[in-house]
Design a protein around this nucleic acid. Structure first.
Lengths: 192, 192
DNA sequence: GTCTATATAACGATAGAC
DNA sequence: GTCTATCGTTATATAGAC
C-alpha cells in the first residue's frame, strides 16, 4: 500500500471517529506510519487529504447501499434491506457526522461530498419507492421523495440518538419505526 | 448581566455554532467580553463552562417543546405543533449536534446532558401519543415509544440533511414525512 | 517520495496583580 | 471578581536533506 493510500485510509478512519475539526494531521501521520513530507507531497494540506478520504468513504457507502437496493426482490424488501444494513450506531454515519462539523460546512469543497452522497441516496431510495408505486405494491398516494427523505432522516437521526444515549437500541427503535411506516404503505397489508 | 452569565450565554451560542471541539475558551471570552480570570474563577475550565451552557440550552429547548406539547388540543395537533416549531435547519439542533462531537461523547458528564434531554423528549412525545391512543384518536396498534423515536430521529436527521445540502427544504421534507405518518395513525382519517 | 527539523499561531490552563 | 501576563503543548504548514 502506498503512503498516499495509507494516508487516505487513516484519514478516513479518523474522520469517522473524531470528525474533521477533531482530527489533526499529526494523528493521521501516526496512524498511517508516515512523515510530514509524505502528506504534504501528496496533498496540499489537511483539507485536501480529508476530501480524498471523504470520496473514499462515499464510494464505500454507495457500494454497500447499492447491494441492498438493487436486486429482484419487491420494493418493500429492498427498502427494508437498506434499513437493515449492518451499521455501528455508536460510531455514527461517515457522511452524516461530517455534515454536522462546522469546518466541513464552511468549506464548500468538503461539504459538497456529503451533499452529493445524500442526493444520490435520496434519488436511489425515491426510485425504488416509485417502482413500488408503479407496480401497485405501495399505495398510489405514496410520495416517493418525501418517504425517501423520511427514511434517510430516520437513519441519520437514529445515529444521533444512539450516540447521545450511548445505546444502539435507540438507533434500532428509530429504524424499527421507519420499517413499520414503509410496511404500512404496502397495499396488500391492508393499512393495518 | 454578570460575567458568569455572559460567559454561559456566549458558550451556548458558540457550542451551537461550532460544536465543542470547534469552540475555544478564547472565542468564548471574546464574545462574552471577559478575561481569562473570569472564566477560571467561575468554572474549572472549558468542560465545566460547556456543561453549564448545555444545561442552559437544554432548559430552553424543554420550555419551547413543552409549549407545543402541552395544551388542550388533540394529540395529533400537539405532535404536529412540535414538528412545526420554529427551527433553524442550517444551524442544527443544540443538543443533537453536540451528541455527534467526539469529545462530548468521550466525557460522560457532558454527554449525559444530551442523553437526559432526549430521554425527556422521548418520554413526553410517547406520553402524548399514548394519550391519543387511549382517547381513541390514534389506531390502537400504535406503539408510542417507537413512534416517539421515529419523530425525534426525523427531526434530528432532517437537520443533518439540511446541513449537508445547505438547504432548509431538506429539513422540511423530512418533517413533512413525519407529519404524514402521524396523520396516518389517526383513526378518523381512515388510514387513507 | 519520504523523512526530520523547524516556524508560527492557537489551545487550554495557571499565576498573580488589582 | 476581574484583569493581563505567561506557560507548556499542540495544530498546521514549510524547509530542506536524502
Amino acid at each position: 500500500m502506498s503512503k498516499k493510500e495509507a494516508l487516505t485510509r487513516a484519514a478516513a478512519e479518523l474522520l469517522w471517529e473524531r470528525g474533521y475539526t477533531g482530527t489533526s494531521p499529526a494523528m493521521i501521520l501516526e496512524r498511517a506510519h508516515a512523515g510530514q513530507g509524505s502528506m504534504y507531497h501528496h496533498f496540499s494540506g489537511k483539507a485536501e487529504l480529508a476530501a480524498a478520504a471523504m470520496e473514499h468513504m462515499s464510494d464505500q457507502l454507495r457500494s454497500r447501499t447499492e447491494d441492498a437496493l438493487a436486486g429482484e426482490e419487491s420494493a418493500v424488501a429492498r427498502v427494508h434491506a437498506f434499513l437493515d444494513l449492518e451499521r455501528d450506531p455508536l460510531a455514527g454515519c461517515r457522511m452524516g457526522r461530517l455534515a454536522q462539523d462546522y469546518e466541513i460546512v464552511a468549506d464548500d469543497g468538503l461539504r459538497v461530498t456529503t451533499a452529493d452522497f445524500f442526493t444520490w441516496l435520496g434519488d436511489r431510495l425515491s426510485a425504488v419507492l416509485a417502482e413500488g408505486v408503479r407496480a401497485g405494491e405501495f399505495r398510489p398516494d405514496t410520495d416517493p421523495d418525501v418517504m425517501a427523505s423520511l427514511i434517510m432522516a430516520t437513519v441519520q437521526g437514529g445515529y444521533v440518538l444512539a450516540r447521545a444515549h450511548q445505546d444502539p437500541a435507540a438507533f434500532r427503535r428509530a429504524v424499527a419505526g421507519a420499517k413499520q411506516v414503509v410496511a404500512s404503505l404496502v397495499v396488500s397489508s391492508g393499512q393495518g
